[in-house]
Simulated scan of single mutants.
Amino acid sequence: MSLLFGGVCQIGYVVRDIEKAMRHWSDVLAVGPWFYKEAVGTTEFRYYGQASALPDLSIALANSGGVQIELIQQRNDAPSLYLDSLKHAGEGMQHIAYWTDDRFDEYAEALRARGYVEGHGGRMGMRGRFAYYMHADLPGNIVEISEMAGGKGEYFATIAAAARGWDGADPIRGIGAGQ
């Protein structure tokens, strides 16, 4: 538990083949169901504080208990921490995330005051802001702050509820571009 942000809400993994990763998590680890969006639709993006090309992202989300698991595959070469992580560490866990309804700026300032810098950030569609922070002392320790505005909180609650009652059926559920 963080005294600053509460409990970790999400663990994110960068992968090269998201369909394969979802199958592994659901078939081998029995985690699901996965809510899969092939084209996320990032609308704003910064890389180390500068406006940047938009990454073409596919994302899958599922819950394991009270923690959301996120799988991320970037399908283009726009600069991002996702590609940086793949290059330096390969596939695997890339970040932990804390969520907030109304304290995004406060959380971001708390990280900056402790020596963290924003590696990348932005917005996906009409949903709330997100930002990934890094610290020179622990460069592989990426912390995401995610704002639950724009329906994101309700969407994540739906994913958590589906996991609680999941019986293994329909393990991968495609989500349309409007989500």
Rank of each mutant, 00 (worst) to 15 (best):
M1W: 06
S2Y: 10
L3I: 10
L3H: 12
I11D: 08
G12S: 09
G12H: 09
Y13G: 03
V15I: 04
V15P: 06
V15M: 10
R16L: 14
D17H: 12
D17F: 13
I18N: 12
K20H: 08
M22R: 13
H24P: 05
W25D: 12
W25Y: 15
S26N: 06
S26I: 01
A30M: 14
A30E: 10
G32S: 04
W34C: 12
F35M: 09
K37C: 12
K37G: 11
E38K: 15
T43K: 05
T43Q: 10
T43P: 00
F45A: 10
F45M: 13
Y48D: 04
A51K: 15
S52F: 00
A53E: 15
D56I: 11
L57M: 08
L57E: 02
S58P: 03
I59F: 01
L61R: 04
S64M: 07
S64L: 07
G65S: 05
Q68D: 01
I69W: 00
I69R: 15
E70K: 02
I72V: 12
Q73C: 11
Q73H: 07
Q74A: 00
R75T: 00
D77S: 08
D77C: 03
A78E: 05
A78W: 06
L81K: 13
Y82L: 13
L83I: 04
L83F: 03
D84Y: 12
S85M: 14
L86C: 13
L86Y: 15
G90D: 09
G90I: 07
H95F: 07
I96F: 05
W99F: 09
W99S: 01
T100L: 02
D101R: 02
D102L: 00
R103A: 01
R103D: 00
E109G: 05
E109P: 00
E109T: 06
A110E: 11
A110I: 02
A113D: 11
A113F: 00
A113G: 05
Y116W: 07
V117P: 01
V117M: 06
E118W: 08
E118P: 02
E118Q: 12
G119C: 09
H120C: 11
G122E: 13
M126Y: 02
M126C: 04
M126F: 02
R129F: 05
R129T: 03
F130G: 02
F130T: 04
Y133C: 03
Y133R: 08
A136T: 03
L138T: 12
N141R: 09
N141H: 13
N141Q: 12
I142C: 10
V143K: 07
V143F: 04
E144C: 10
I145V: 05
E147D: 09
A149E: 08
G150M: 13
K152A: 07
G153S: 15
E154C: 01
T158D: 15
I159N: 10
A163P: 06
A163D: 03
G174W: 04
G176M: 15
G176L: 11
G178M: 15
